[in-house]
Design a protein around this nucleic acid. Sequence first.
DNA 1: CCCAGTGTATTAGTCTTATAGTACAATTCT
DNA 2: AGAATTGTACTATAAGACTAATACACTGGG
Lengths: 143, 143
Amino acid sequence: MSTMEKPKMEQKPKKGPIKIALDPTTGIPFYRQIILQIEMALADGRLTAGTQLPTVRGLAVDLQVNPNTVARAYNELEIRGLVSTQHGTGTFISDKTVTIPDVEREQILSQLARGFVSQASSYGFTVEDIVKHLTDYREQERK
Amino acid sequence: MSTMEKPKMEQKPKKGPIKIALDPTTGIPFYRQIILQIEMALADGRLTAGTQLPTVRGLAVDLQVNPNTVARAYNELEIRGLVSTQHGTGTFISDKTVTIPDVEREQILSQLARGFVSQASSYGFTVEDIVKHLTDYREQERK
DNA sequence: CCCAGTGTATTAGTCTTATAGTACAATTCT
DNA sequence: AGAATTGTACTATAAGACTAATACACTGGG
């Protein structure tokens, strides 16, 4: 996967404004992709309390979506307590940021997976079938 | 609905045709309610192999829905191998595992997986997370 | 063969969701 | 106060899910 090997200073220094990119092919709504990526940035420390998020308009222009789409994402994040918005000022990372422990993450994934495996089982699929399918899927995504 | 009460001995002793009732207030689609209730009846033994289900039209009239709604439910049940439909004859509880073409199986699994990946993504999990989890899960199942 | 019964296919209508277009409202700084 | 920047509210459009209306196709008993 190295069509061009050049480990220059291309590394992300974990600083600077958060970079968000939308993928219209995933089937995941834009506003949800924004939420997800901000959550990720929160989880790995790229975003810390007090940091101002891109403005609704600014990010909308950057992502080439409507301001409402960004606003919706920010709104849900505020409901979850992850950010705090101030009309006329901006949207900021809340200082009471919640970090999800790995154990809890594992539990969530386990619960999701259990439901999925159960569902797939009722169609006659085995865990191996699923793993194989997902592996192939991931390979294709990486093309 | 009952302008005339008939307090007879209207006992249904777990026999006779399966009784299905739809509740429009639940938000659960009609076709899915039908599927669920048949699955339940299968689970607790009220339905056994070889039994004929109500006809598409008959049940549709009974439930006051369109035949297609019943047909859709029966169709999904057949895909899962729970029932077997014979054009012109009826729909029956299947007594043995039905074989489904591999191509169709693959499409079904793909669709299921897409939904699951989307769901897991909204929680911040990647396909790799999922694959790893499922692989570990399978390992544990094997010992 | 024909007819009554069965499942199926095609098309359309309705509702919900995601997003956009546009105008409005609050804050800050001068 | 006024202008610029910020988030917000309202309405409209596109796409998908669910169901209905209607016509088609297969099966088995007279």
